[in-house]
Nucleic acid binder design. Structure first.
Length: 204
DNA sequence: CCACGGATTGGCT
DNA sequence: GCCAATCCGTGGA
């Protein structure tokens, strides 16, 4: 067993709490995707929070649409969106019904299914040491490596296809807080969180 | 190492 | 028609 991981699925009451609390506590948790007998998993090392009530960069800022409606539901569901004509990104919906809040998973550290993650990302088997760190260090890369796409929109994270395993909480002095990256609006909100010195973080 | 720009779909004005 | 919560390749220092 990997140190720090508790083999226990996170329940609804983890997700329904306030956005920034959930965002921070998602660090260190294990993201798991199960397909038949295949398990892909990784430790969450970088996230960003989005809140449509005050945050122009959030997809929910414009109100409810077909694309973002899952974000207005209760916490603990997966919001997957497609962007730049090429990439999917995964978010964990947080809070209570009507909140329009979610946490973007920006980077994970691979744990299980390395060979499959590599195959999905690079379409070949072997990977050199450098490529290992380029596997899941970005929101689009995670979805490509884990084969997460539109068909996973709205999945209940308390179910058994995609879910999170608990882990010991990362202490505040191991968490770096910065502005979010890759956006053009509400650029000053300090809503990006990542694990200090972790080599799988997308950018420092 | 860093900066820049192109790719390419779909959501929204 | 505009442009994006990204990624990758290129070109220069």
């Amino acid at each position: 067993m990997t140190p720090g991981i508790i083999q226990k699925k996170l329940k609804r009451n983890f997700y329904t709490r306030e956005l920034l609390i959930v965002a921070k506590e998602l660090l260190g948790k294990t993201l798991v995707k199960k397909d038949k007998d295949q398990i892909l998993s990784g430790k969450i090392v970088e996230v960003e929070a989005y809140d449509g009530s005050m945050d122009e960069a959030a997809h929910t800022f414009i109100g409810k649409t077909k694309r973002n409606e899952i974000m207005f539901g209760v916490g603990g569901f997966l919001y997957v969106y497609f962007t730049y004509g090429a990439h999917f990104c995964s978010n964990v919906v947080t809070g209570e019904i009507g909140h329009g809040t979610a946490v973007l998973i920006r980077a994970i550290e691979p744990i299980k299914g390395m060979n499959v993650l590599i195959k999905n990302r690079f379409n070949r088997n072997l990977v050199n040491e450098k490529e290992k760190y380029n596997l899941t260090n970005g929101p689009g890369k995670i979805c490509q490596a884990m084969s997460i796409n539109k068909s996973h929109y709205g999945i209940d994270l308390t179910g058994n296809q995609i879910y999170l395993l608990d882990a010991t909480k990362i202490s505040d002095d191991e968490i770096v807080i910065t502005k979010r990256i890759g956006i053009k609006k509400s650029v000053d909100l300090p809503w990006r969180f990542y694990i200090k010195n972790n080599p799988f973080v997308s950018k420092r």
